[in-house]
């Protein structure tokens, strides 16, 4: 994945465990600043190695760490120079999710070689969404759950996310929520 994702992972470890912990992780994986170049595409295997190593240090399973990272990513993107584009993507949960593909369309144009997911809102009723996530990658269910949870947090919504169906290249999520607590 893009180095931007690795940098967000580093930021999360920094915030949770401090800089030393990240440096130890770098040492363990024999990586350094050259594996954190924003605009570089790295092998997903390296990204997963970083996640696994961070999980061990955060005392989480890999799945829990992916979830935590998904949640964190929404916060990370919501700060700094990406914040305006996050705000522009949508100002409530349903509209944000329905615009995610448009966001990633721009991401794809800015970051050639990115393999981006697709999110389709199949049902949109007050307090209820059915969202289909499609990707050519496997194994990111917990990450997406974390992202969706992060989005609920972002819009101060409370509720539950469940997996309705797992397909070969897609997962259906059922989101039941209440807006603004």
């Amino acid at each position: 994945m893009y180095g931007m994702i690795h940098r967000a992972m580093r930021q999360m470890v920094h915030e949770e465990l401090g800089e030393e912990a990240w440096l130890a992780l770098e040492q363990k994986l024999a990586i350094g600043p050259t594996e954190l170049l924003t605009g570089m595409v790295y092998d997903d295997a390296l990204t997963m190695q970083i996640v696994a190593e961070a999980a061990a240090r955060l005392n989480l399973s890999v799945e829990q760490c992916l979830f935590a990272f998904g949640q964190y990513w929404v916060r990370f993107a919501g700060q700094g120079s990406l914040s305006s584009i996050m705000k522009f993507t949508g100002q409530n949960l349903a509209s944000f999710i329905s615009n995610l593909d448009r966001l990633h369309l721009a991401v794809g144009a800015a970051m050639p070689g990115a393999r981006l997911p697709s999110f389709a809102t199949l049902e949109n009723a007050p307090g209820h969404l059915v969202v289909e996530y499609r990707s050519d990658r496997a194994g990111l269910e917990s990450f997406v759950l974390g992202l969706l949870q992060g989005l609920m947090d972002r819009f101060q919504a409370r509720g539950d996310i469940e997996v309705l169906h797992r397909g070969e290249k897609s997962i259906l999520f059922d989101i039941r929520y209440q807006d603004r607590g």
Binding site: I85, A106, V107
Partner: peptide, 24 residues
């Protein structure tokens, strides 16, 4: 809209790249 988003994204990447260059 697509191109304005592109500009904003590229600016964000440029900022991160500058930080990366300093780290290097």
């Amino acid at each position: 809209i697509l191109s304005t988003m592109l500009i904003v994204l590229q600016r964000a990447m440029l900022e991160e790249s500058q930080a990366t260059a300093i780290e290097l």
